[in-house]
């Protein structure tokens, strides 16, 4: 599957989520939190589609090359159900937590449900890493290394600033942003490293 097709798929998913939110809000009288949750997920997918369209041409061609290979095809195939599962788990988890769950173990289980999907993502990513060729593996491992070090240093510095009462960041927000920051830094590092070998 080419990156162009993936961007269209993101757009379609985004519009579908926004439509579900709109139907829920105007026709089914859902509570505002439920409707806005769907709209938020839709906006996320739409933004993803736009970002994919704005990527440089050489990078899109590189990604198309990589996803045309057996390892890339297998990775993409396993990625879709995981991402859809993650979105649904996140939506359900937020809704149930907002509604309130008295039992602490059950609340904990519901709260971490979206993270289970990310464990599956990690398994798929590790399999992809083992199956790609040596240059790609070198680029991937370097990008993962750079992302881990940069995000660790950033959080260490932020922790020191918080301790010195220079900044005041909510702990839950800070922890939730670790994974997205790692993914974004890894993506940028991978682009730069790939460019070096072009």
């Amino acid at each position: 599957m080419t990156l162009q097709r993936i961007s269209w798929l993101f757009a379609a998913l985004g519009l579908a989520c926004v439509a579900v939110g709109a139907v829920g809000h105007w026709l089914l009288a859902w509570p505002p939190a439920a409707a806005s949750g769907w709209a938020g997920a839709g906006a996320g997918y739409l933004a993803g589609g736009v970002v994919l369209r704005l990527l440089p041409r050489w990078w899109r061609q590189h990604c198309d090359d990589m996803y045309a290979q057996p390892a890339g095809r297998r990775y993409l195939r396993s990625l879709w159900p995981i991402m859809v599962g993650y979105t649904l788990a996140l939506f359900a988890s937020i809704m149930l937590i907002r509604r309130g769950i008295d039992s602490v173990p059950l609340r904990a289980l519901v709260a971490v449900a979206p993270a289970f999907a990310l464990v599956l993502l990690m398994r798929a990513a590790l399999r992809y890493l083992r199956e790609i060729d040596e240059l790609q593996r070198r680029i991937e491992t370097e990008a993962i290394g750079i992302a881990s070090l940069l995000v660790s240093v950033l959080y260490f510095a932020a922790g020191l600033l918080q301790k010195a009462k220079v900044v005041e960041v909510d702990a839950a927000t800070a922890m939730i942003w670790v994974f997205p920051l790692l993914c974004a830094t890894y993506g940028i590092a991978k682009m730069l490293l790939t460019r070096r070998f072009q």
Binding site: H62, D65, M66, Q69, I132, D133, E134, L135, Q136, T194, F197, Q198
Partner: peptide, 10 residues
Amino acid sequence: LAVSRQTIHA
């Protein structure tokens, strides 16, 4: 060689 085109180019 079961590698990517980018590897051959590099």
